[in-house]
Design a protein around this nucleic acid. Structure first.
Lengths: 155, 155
DNA sequence: TAAGATTGAATTATCAATCTTC
DNA sequence: GAAGATTGATAATTCAATCTTA
């Protein structure tokens, strides 16, 4: 049952995003996290953490996005080893075009079958699980999490 | 947050299984579903549904397992187009060796951070979500689901 | 023709090694 | 040396095309 939630539901979300703008859920999340930052810019490590992926995975994904013209990559201010990624206007538009369908798909697959109480309970539960599995991440994302819950949760 | 649950938690489970017996969660599930059948045998389509994966994904995975000697594949009784997969003793032993660590890892990552009420609520919620996303699957798995819940849920 | 299943090519992910900068 | 990040090789997944049998 857990397996179903880990394998089946994400693959349906992946398929929807792929047909919409040709990205999977991880790549969509990368774009979404960038779009919420001031200047649409984030350091590689911070972006990897925000997207719940490894740095290597992110690095490959960013390379692909660069080829599409959806992001740019530069040396960060002050220190040349902290590379920062910036979402371009094209990248933002691609994200904006896909977002409504994606959000309604997530709602349909995950939240529609639940009562309001269950939806709110699910948010609490996932919050606890993620927080426990990576306490540092929880601190880093402390500001973002309420927004993410609100965005994904109709309750 | 949902993203974290879809990307981060499964990847930790994958990593644990990979270091233990060199399989990912999908492959582990395939072995586990076979092990629960009478005769340790299941048809390809049924096995794919039980493991929440595509038939193509399963077919590739089964080929890899055949090379390791963990499963065998034969034409089904009566109809030559319904191939059936059988778990070998070696495959069963590999699964049995990895199961305790895997189960405790799942418990640690997912259920330990929760109260008993939350754990039981999570089972109910996931059941609803999976059932809604694939009603046919729900019927097929109706017998298995209570066992799966019991096995993964300390509550 | 359609259901059940396989295959090969292209894409993506993972792992280990490397590179650069502090 | 260690943090931040990239690269290339290996492995797995997806997608589309194909094959076989009812």
């Amino acid at each position: 049952l857990l397996v179903g939630f880990f394998e089946s539901v994400p693959s349906m979300i992946d398929a929807q995003l792929k047909s919409e703008i040709g990205v999977n859920l991880f790549e969509y999340t990368v774009l979404a996290m960038l779009s919420e930052e001031a200047g649409r810019t984030l350091q590689m490590t911070a972006l990897a953490a925000a997207s719940f992926g490894s740095i290597s995975r992110l690095s490959h994904a960013v390379s692909r996005f660069e080829k599409r013209g959806w992001v740019t990559k530069e040396a960060g201010e002050g220190s040349r080893r902290h590379n920062v990624v910036t979402l371009t206007d094209e990248g933002y538009e691609a994200l904006a075009a896909a977002a409504p369908t994606h959000i309604s798909e997530v709602r349909r697959l995950i939240f529609d079958p639940l009562t309001a109480d269950e939806a709110s309970s699910l948010s609490t539960i996932l919050h606890k699980i993620i927080g426990a599995s990576d306490p540092e991440l929880q601190d880093v994302l402390a500001d973002k999490i309420p927004d993410i819950i609100k965005r994904n949760n109709p309750a």
